[in-house]
Design a protein around this nucleic acid. Sequence first.
RNA 1: GGGGGUGUGGCGCAAUUGGUCAGCGUACCAGACUGUCGAUCUGGUGGUUGCGGGUUCGAGCCCCGUCACCCUCGCCA
Length: 602
Amino acid sequence: MGTSAGAARSHRCGELRAEHVGQEVVLCGWVQSRRDHGAVAFMDLRDRYGLIQVVADEDSPAESREFLGKLHLEDCMQVTGTVRMRGEGNRNPDRATGDVEVVAKKVERLSIAKPVPIEILDDLDAPEELRLRYRYLDLRRTPMRRFIEQRTQANHAIRSNLVEQGFVEVETPMLTKSTPEGARDYLVPSRMKAGHVYALPQSPQIFKQLCMVAGLDRYFQIARCLRDEDLRADRQPEFTQLDLEMSFVEEEDVFQTVEQVVAALYQSLFGQTLERPFERMSYAEAMRRYASDKPDLRNPLEIVDLQSVAGDLGFKVFDSVLSAGGMVRGLRVPGGASLSRKAIESIEQTARDAGGAGAAWCKVTEGGQATGPMGRFLKGEAGAAFLAALQAEAGDLVLAVADRKRVALVVLDHVRRKAGQLMDLVQGPDRLLWITEFPLFEEVEDGVWAPAHHPFTSPVEEDLDILRQGQKDGVRSRAYDLVLNGVELGSGSIRIHRREVQEVVFEAIGLSPEQARRRFSFLLEAFDYGPPPHGGFAIGLDRLYALLFQAESIRDVIAFPKTSSAACPLTGAPGQADPAQLEELGLQLSERASVVESPESV
RNA sequence: GGGGGUGUGGCGCAAUUGGUCAGCGUACCAGACUGUCGAUCUGGUGGUUGCGGGUUCGAGCCCCGUCACCCUCGCCA
């Protein structure tokens, strides 16, 4: 901390050590606790930097002795006194400042605190809603303050690394037009142009591409994004992304750039040097081996295709799925025969929770026999072939899932994770992984395909022809994700910069040239003026920080977060609209809106 | 929008099959105490058990509705 303590104080509470003994100091802070013994009284004074014990004894003026005992927790204080060594046996080794104390000469209360609704304790156990309502008190707590400080450091590491890499930082508008992410927009009505609205950005997507057309070459921003969708434990209506875009690049250029940033982050936060390059895996391979587009590679279990061996067992469950065009895949859990009946049942339950019918299973005995529910179907050559496909050995547990393709993959993913967790296989260092060549379209219902990304995501060159022929299944895009231990950190793509390709994609996703021009006119217009090939990436920082800082919730790394109904208990936002403001905006509330009453005004 | 969980003094918790069970800790207030350190001791204030309705002689406890929060599915690149 290279800055001065401030005019009202000479030192910070947390910095006093034996070397300060004898100095007269002026401290400012809050009353953390007080211990009044009559003729001697103590107070722990807290600031951002720590705690210091202030004592008033026979060396202090009588009035300060009395005053110290009368203070409330969290009163804001200024204390003048002398640093002195604590007596032998009176030191507190659990505290950084525990060898010294400040003998009060003058004790002044700068402001008074009512009884606090939440206590300022590291291990506070209070309803989160209350913590949000009194966030300014919650943030006085050390763990919360740490998150803020770590976030500062992380943002700083990111920013300085990207600047080093030659990036320019551009602040893009908050009042803008709808962007192509496909979430619901937050709208802001215009006063100047009644009946018209701004949309708050779901991401700076369009603007960062415009930055590329502008020749800025390498853009980044730590950007606020807003999406009006239902919340989750790891989702907030407004969140922060590290957003970047680069010109004249291919996937590898983006990967290396992002890897440098992430490595700088780990270096700064943990002093840890990440191994680079990160691993890379195509979407197809990830789905084949892990049934997931964000596999946790710390879990070594892999999916095995049993399509060709499942039909010969005389197992009705497999037969009916196969004849319906479904999928049979399985999983070998080495040593899994040691799992209890109850544990295996929990895997079956996981499969059902994931939307499947369950999971077939058997254990492999020393003699190579299969026991358990699926065991009796695994006799003879067909059974041996089945187990051989899995490379199952004595002592293993074998799990098999049969279902419609989309369901089976989801179930396999859950089963793999559950089995890995039960066997305690998920360990080792962080595994960072690029998933590449995501499909351009995803099947949302049987036979119904929707674009998986925004419409400027470039298809893979070799797949252009089949795309032109109207095929959707199997068309690869140049989109990629970065995955950390099974958690998707962010995603990006190489964009389309050629008009001809853009038109093919618009047509494929069912946008007529007119519709496309209406929605993205300004970007398409910009693309008439020599757009460079470009691509980029965006990382959700709140989620990443929650992970890296080991916060319990994404809300802990956000200073002033919202509840799961997108409300702010502190400010009471969203608030009721003021009729005068509505009038000015040319707006009228519908029946539905006026029925809704605020439950309570704070 | 669907499913699940939670809701008792400011805060954390308790209350047997529905029957003196509205109690404990902490904070708060008053007092005592020369070395504590999330001090201790004594005494005290404080609750229409989220809200509304119902069942019952009787509801914190059972039923219905509702609100808020948390988790989750849908939704969200």
